Simulated scan of single mutants.
Amino acid sequence: MDCNYVQEAAEYVRARIGETPRIGLILGSGLGGIAEVIEDKHVIPYGEIPHFVCSTAPGHKGQFVAGRFGGKPVICMQGRLHFYEGHALSDIIFPVRVMKQLGVTSLIVTNAAGGINTSFQVGDLMLIEDHINFMGTNPLIGPNDASFGPRFCDMTYTYTPALRQAAQEAAQSLGLTLQKGVYLGCTGPSYETPAEIRAFRTLGADAVGMSTVPEVIAASHCGLQVLAFSLITNMAAGILDQPLTEEEVIEIGNRRGSDLQRLITRIVTDCSAL
């Protein structure tokens, strides 16, 4: 990925927003409602930004929304890009690098996920403590541009401990139950088989989805703090005796998205590390 492309895209966005954003948000399936409450907003469709590709996933509007959220300047991806759409990983992580170029120092990521942990229930919120990359590739493969980050990126503290602690305190203050666990990222677009889910549980995964891992790797590579949540929109294959559908994912996202919005608002408002 040419760093000049990142700079050109960032300059285009910078000219169309207000103050410099310090927090970036990536909103998953059915969770785009957070962008609707951003104040003093500036909306930029991905298709207008140089070198961007457009999202085709259901429930993803495909636009940047910049403004103030929780009293702080933010820029929000209302809809993300997925590997299963046929995008190159370099395109998927491109927005993260643009946000970094714009001045973002912390990234909050949300996704819709299938519950692997049998103690979870549909509608649960899960704080991601770590991830397993099961996508078969890595967005940092290829020539490394040191202006983005080091050749070999340490992933030990990828999900920033101080932000995870702030999330747990915010959930407690709001009376929200917040599960904790490991997210496993697959390519999709097919849902996982029951045998795969049994294998993933053995590996230590608590939830599974088709996103997040590439963006988080890129965020870690370029030095961003990361906080991430999964909304458990369905139980993974083989746990319940019923088929999985994208309509279920979006419906649960719409129903429980308000709780996630409350939680993220409290964290952004109260956390001094952001």
Rank of each mutant, 00 (worst) to 15 (best):
K72E: 10
V74W: 05
V74N: 04
I75V: 11
I75R: 06
I75M: 10
C76V: 02
C76P: 01
C76E: 00
C76A: 14
M77H: 02
M77K: 03
M77W: 02
Q78F: 00
Q78S: 00
G79C: 08
G79W: 03
R80F: 00
R80H: 06
H82S: 06
H82R: 08
H82M: 14
F83A: 01
Y84F: 13
Y84N: 11
E85G: 09
G86T: 05
G86H: 06
H87S: 14
A88T: 02
S90F: 04
S90Y: 05
D91E: 12
I92W: 02
F94S: 00
F94C: 03
F94K: 02
P95R: 03
R97N: 15
R97G: 05
V98W: 02
V98E: 02
M99P: 13
K100E: 11
K100M: 08
K100G: 11
K100S: 11
Q101Y: 08
Q101A: 12
L102Q: 06
G103Q: 05
T105A: 08
S106K: 07
L107C: 04
I108L: 12
I108P: 12
V109P: 01
N111A: 08
A113S: 13
G114Q: 05
G115E: 01
I116N: 03
I116R: 03
I116L: 11
N117Y: 10
N117F: 12
N117G: 07
S119K: 07
F120L: 13
F120Q: 00
V122H: 15
V122F: 13
G123D: 09
G123N: 15
G123A: 09
D124M: 04
L125I: 15
L125T: 02
M126E: 04
M126D: 04
I128R: 00
H131N: 10
N133Q: 07
N133S: 10
M135G: 00
M135C: 07
G136T: 03
N138D: 11
P139S: 00
P139H: 03
L140H: 00
L140F: 08
L140G: 00
L140C: 07
I141N: 12
G142I: 15
G142K: 14
P143W: 11
N144K: 13
N144I: 15
N144P: 06
N144G: 12
S147K: 08
S147T: 15
F148T: 02
F148N: 01
F148W: 13
F148V: 14
G149M: 05
G149I: 04
G149F: 08
P150Y: 08
R151F: 06
C153S: 07
D154H: 14
D154G: 15
D154N: 12
T156E: 07
T158L: 13
T160M: 12
T160L: 11
P161R: 13
P161C: 05
P161M: 10
A162S: 10
L163Y: 03
L163I: 05
Q165R: 09
Q165N: 15
Q165T: 07
Q165M: 14
Q165P: 01
A166T: 07
A170H: 03
A170E: 00
A171S: 07
Q172D: 08
L174Q: 06
G175W: 03
G175Q: 06
L176S: 09
L176H: 13
L176P: 02
L176T: 13
L178H: 10
Q179W: 06
Q179Y: 05
Q179D: 09
K180T: 10
K180G: 05
L184H: 06
L184I: 13
